[in-house]
Design a protein around this nucleic acid. Structure first.
Lengths: 154, 154
DNA sequence: ATCTAAATAGTAGTAAACATTATGTGATAG
DNA sequence: CTATCACATAATGTTTACTACTATTTAGAT
């Protein structure tokens, strides 16, 4: 990604912040710029290491909080399957998962058309796919109404 | 799930263990029984709390290790929430993820048919879906050659 | 019954996520 | 421009999940 493209994205991001009522701070810009400047999937720690090159005084906590903020306003997202304690499922029957990003509840559902997803050949050829699923994130029923109170995880 | 069904599953599990060359320990049975006896998606900690009611001396470490073993032999699986640090993605263009469960690498791919998944109505009605994607797990190319999981004995 | 490799319990260590608090700063109105 | 205030940050500490290590125990084979 060249400098122009980055500048455009950063301006876009700044507009998005204002629209969401967030203040524009140098830290936010720096974190965002660092994030989109990598094609990897960095942890907060990774971004922290990188962004310090430009802004040595920034704290890890700020980086982490900022990244979460970016995810909240839709300027970035958390890669599925990361950041939570590991959770297990003994149900081997075909089913799919919906994760409530607010209360953390995982809700099973089963939509038979999702059972046999056809993968493109370049994937089947390159990787050994052990699991393929449709994965949903959003708000469960109780959380759509409650605004502040956090529900216990199931 | 009634007692008969559980008994069948446990026998099945024991056979699966033998086939994988794993010893049958009371701890393994207990952990497995506890796991399939819940329709939730427990963490190791959750299972630990539950299984201690029957087997007070079991250690958390054993529960965690056993659950991972179950996942390895296919008697259970790890759901979204892989115990890794949270990872972010600033690439907002449509794409999907492949996670290598061995080296932890996340590989982007893009298969346009996956961009617009049609959800069943009962989902759209109940939940506010903020993200929907096809998610793959398996082994990436370099990791396919270095399997650590013991092959079934024939 | 004996042996051996595997599994477990117990403990300690590491690292990520989160909470708290004092300080600092961006955005707005006067 | 500057005064104000809510929001953001830095610094620190706490909690929690995960992993590492070692001595002991045990399942399964002979």
């Amino acid at each position: 990604m060249n400098n122009d493209q980055i500048a455009i994205k950063v301006r876009d991001f700044e507009r998005r912040c204002r629209e969401s009522g967030l203040k524009m701070t140098p830290q936010r810009s720096a974190v965002y710029k660092t994030l989109i400047n990598t094609d990897m999937h960095p942890t907060a720690e990774d971004v922290y290491r990188e962004v310090r090159k430009e802004m040595p005084a920034i704290s890890l906590d700020t980086v982490n909080r900022t990244l979460l903020t970016l995810a909240e306003i839709g300027a970035a997202f958390v890669v599925e399957g990361t950041g939570q304690p590991r959770r297990f499922d003994g149900g081997l029957e075909d089913h799919q998962h919906f994760l409530c990003i607010k209360c953390g509840k995982i809700i099973d559902f089963h939509h038979p058309p999702f059972d046999n997803i056809q993968l493109p050949h370049e994937i089947e050829g390159k990787f050994k796919v052990l699991r393929k699923t449709v994965y949903l994130e959003g708000l469960c029923e109780p959380c759509q109404n409650q605004s502040t109170i956090k529900e216990p995880v199931n």
